[in-house]
Design a protein around this nucleic acid. Sequence first.
DNA 1: TTGAAAGCGCTAACAA
DNA 2: TTGTTAGCGCTTTCAA
Lengths: 350, 350
Amino acid sequence: MTPSEPVPRRRMTSHPRKPPVIADVARLAGVSVPTVSRYMTGSARVSPGKSRLIAEAIAALNFRPSSVARALVSGPPKMVAVLTGNTSQYGYAETIRGIEEGARAAGYLVTISVVESAELPAVEQTIQLVLEQTVAGLIVLTFNPAGVAALHALPPGIPRVAIAGAREKGTPQAVLAEADAAEELTNYLLALGHETVHHVRVPPSRREDGRTLGWRRALRAAGKPVPPIIESDWDPYTGESIGRQIAGRGDITAVFCGNDEIAMGVIRGLKELGKHVPDDISVTGFDDHPLAGLWTPPLTTVRQDFAALGRRAWQMLQDILDDHPGKRFASDRPPLVIRESAAAPRSLRT
Amino acid sequence: MTPSEPVPRRRMTSHPRKPPVIADVARLAGVSVPTVSRYMTGSARVSPGKSRLIAEAIAALNFRPSSVARALVSGPPKMVAVLTGNTSQYGYAETIRGIEEGARAAGYLVTISVVESAELPAVEQTIQLVLEQTVAGLIVLTFNPAGVAALHALPPGIPRVAIAGAREKGTPQAVLAEADAAEELTNYLLALGHETVHHVRVPPSRREDGRTLGWRRALRAAGKPVPPIIESDWDPYTGESIGRQIAGRGDITAVFCGNDEIAMGVIRGLKELGKHVPDDISVTGFDDHPLAGLWTPPLTTVRQDFAALGRRAWQMLQDILDDHPGKRFASDRPPLVIRESAAAPRSLRT
DNA sequence: TTGAAAGCGCTAACAA
DNA sequence: TTGTTAGCGCTTTCAA
């Protein structure tokens, strides 16, 4: 605040509402401060008479003990922070839900901080904000570049767990084995008879995501050509326009999309230009979005259990906080979910 | 961790490795505690020589000041809590994103706590957990009964804002004018020529939600019959089975669903039994889900800007925290979004 | 069972 | 510019 600014004045009349402190209660109840403390915490017996007086005083003043002061005496607050990119996307929201669930069960509170971009000033500002509060530990979602940047910008010494697609050495992490799942999905498409599989990829968290990796691996292993990657962002409408482009290309018979929402967009775009899925072209997603099974046609995809991933990460962090050794790496294998958006190519059908 | 990495020391020391405190830094740097404090906060100049020594000591000890102790001296921590039901649903996630965005811009951190059910023990436990931390204020999402219960169970004296469908007296709140929007949507359907409009409702936060209210109001005003409500939960698959039921009923020509995801399910169920939307039956949603425009057919719905709602609520809370008076009630009118899932009834078409 | 006294880790007020 | 002295609001010895 600069000196020239008019000082917002707290009206003397209506706002002398300084919250009551324990001493006020003690005074009103006619006992000592420690006695009130003992009453509040139940750490020692307090005589019934004084208990009643204290209870009345507390009620009269509407007293609530300051958790800050309390924390100063009795250890750090039970709070963990989650550093994340965008939160409203399905995978993020589910992961955070899992973390929160686990943490709450253990009596920890979760604080969420969004890292808007991978630019260093933004990242550092957010981290600073978080570390100003006392958090017992951090869980960083490195699904996107901003998250990765945040993980790297974190000062040493604070317990942390990364939730990631890609392996991040030096940091305990919980991951979903995307690459293996993507490989399996690609192989499934190949087994259906497709000559190759095209890949629409969503923005990777680093140079290459597991999904893309697994796709390429499967193609290479099968000796199939690896077509150029079609780039997309996170917006389903981008998928739609990609679908319209693809509709004009007779050479594409199978498309593996980086996530379900993009796959839905692609199918929609294809449909708009008269292409039928899966008769004309097979399209698969990734994630098993809640609407994937209700799409037309229902999406063949890979089920990523983000909530379980979040719980898993919490578990790892808790182990670290409790000074249990524990594993430093946990990986779950997402299963293939076969529905109706993929089939044999037209050339092989009767 | 790979074997080549340096083994973390202190293996021998018993595990409660106590974090360094400011006194440790002062001792190591050979200065007094307040000097270190001044260096850290920049509240007064510190000579270059000592600055260097202090910086070195801080680095050597990997010291980070305790925000708890700091808070005790200099006011409550910049943290607000969000109490919410399920978080992974679209509306919730978006709302929280809006809150977080506003709060972060103001230098506040947001902590999320999920209230699992409206049962008192669960509600109180969560509230207790939150209040044990020191939060400057609370934002409660009362979209569902659990949220409403949480709001009511909150002890007095803590700054709070409710985000709600329904009006909640005594608490400042930010709402979306659902009832008006639902009324407009119903009128739109009626204007298309439908004899009446059926309503599939999602679980209301209290006795009746704005959506249901507006629907009924429109029907009454138009002198149309008010058909019995069809109850649904939040699961899109429930919508699907409702759609299949509806397919068998010739009397239904227009359906107003409580949200987009249910509408998508209903359309899917209808389609499975050979009914065409909107030729055979009109179906509308509510929310304008990110996939609403890509559904087949694209959904006619109402756009609820949840992120803006969240930002608005934050704004109100901030005003309260800053002791600005400000409005105690903010309502936004969600606009109708006309796409293709509603049309004139078959009887009126050529 | 109770109260007096001593901190928890930090910052603010006051001298030097 | 620096150190000394007081607290912030609470819990925890330690006597009584």
